[in-house]
């Protein structure tokens, strides 16, 4: 049973309890980094690492944190993790770090991290909290990758920076939809994803 529960902690946020489309958290940074696949994947991994680690640490400390100052304590721990991630990115992927610009720092205020800390880590043991963090980070990542895939493919005809739409298409008059690269399309795409998901799972629909 325990095994089953632990598995559910990871699989549920991928679909039914997805942090972006069902809980509507963490949208701030979800949209801006999705023009290309590569930064989107790096961002997804960073958020997963931060969520998992801070969930784990907060869950270890959950009985010692006074509830009145818990927000400050959480923010401090999360920003510590983000600084670590940022330093690693700066050291090994400097170009990408420049491209993500302020959005790495904004993981601190990413609602998914805080939301999971408040809702899960404060009331659960470290191991489930770690898994919950991984699951929610991955759920966020799935949406990021879907949006980035569509935007990069249709917006610039590339994936991971390599051209995938063959030249003969362009010769036949195919044009890249440059509008996909503009910020509004990210919003509309997520709206569409929510639409598709909710028409499949009726229980998510709002009255």
């Amino acid at each position: 049973m325990a095994q089953n529960n632990n598995l559910e902690l990871i699989t549920k946020p991928l679909n039914l309890n997805n942090p972006v489309t069902a809980q509507i958290l963490g949208i701030c940074s979800a949209l801006a980094v999705t023009v290309q696949l590569e930064p989107a994947i790096v961002m997804a991994i960073s958020v997963t690492v931060v969520t998992a680690l801070s969930n784990f640490v907060i869950s270890l400390l959950r009985n010692t944190i006074p509830s009145r100052i818990r927000i400050i304590v959480q923010l401090m721990i999360v920003s510590l993790m983000v600084i670590l991630v940022d330093q690693v990115l700066k050291a090994y992927m400097y170009q990408l770090d420049k491209q993500l610009s302020v959005y790495v720092g904004l993981i601190i205020t990413n609602c998914i991290v805080m939301g999971r800390l408040e809702a899960f880590a404060l009331g659960n043991k470290p191991l489930p909290a770690l898994l919950d963090g991984i699951g929610n980070g991955a759920g966020y990542g799935v949406i990021l990758v879907i949006v980035a895939f569509i935007r990069e493919l249709f917006g610039s005809g590339k994936l991971f920076g390599c051209q995938v739409i063959p030249d003969c298409f362009y010769n036949l008059g195919y044009e890249n939809c440059g509008f996909m690269l503009n910020p509004p399309m990210a919003l509309i795409l997520i709206g569409m994803i929510i639409w598709i998901q909710r028409s499949k799972y009726k229980e998510l629909q709002e009255k």
Partner: peptide
Amino acid sequence: VPAPLKGVGIAFITCGLMAIAFM
């Protein structure tokens, strides 16, 4: 509004359209 779009879904799309206007 179509049932699956109610609430957040339509909010996202509205917000996207407003963003186009702001562009």
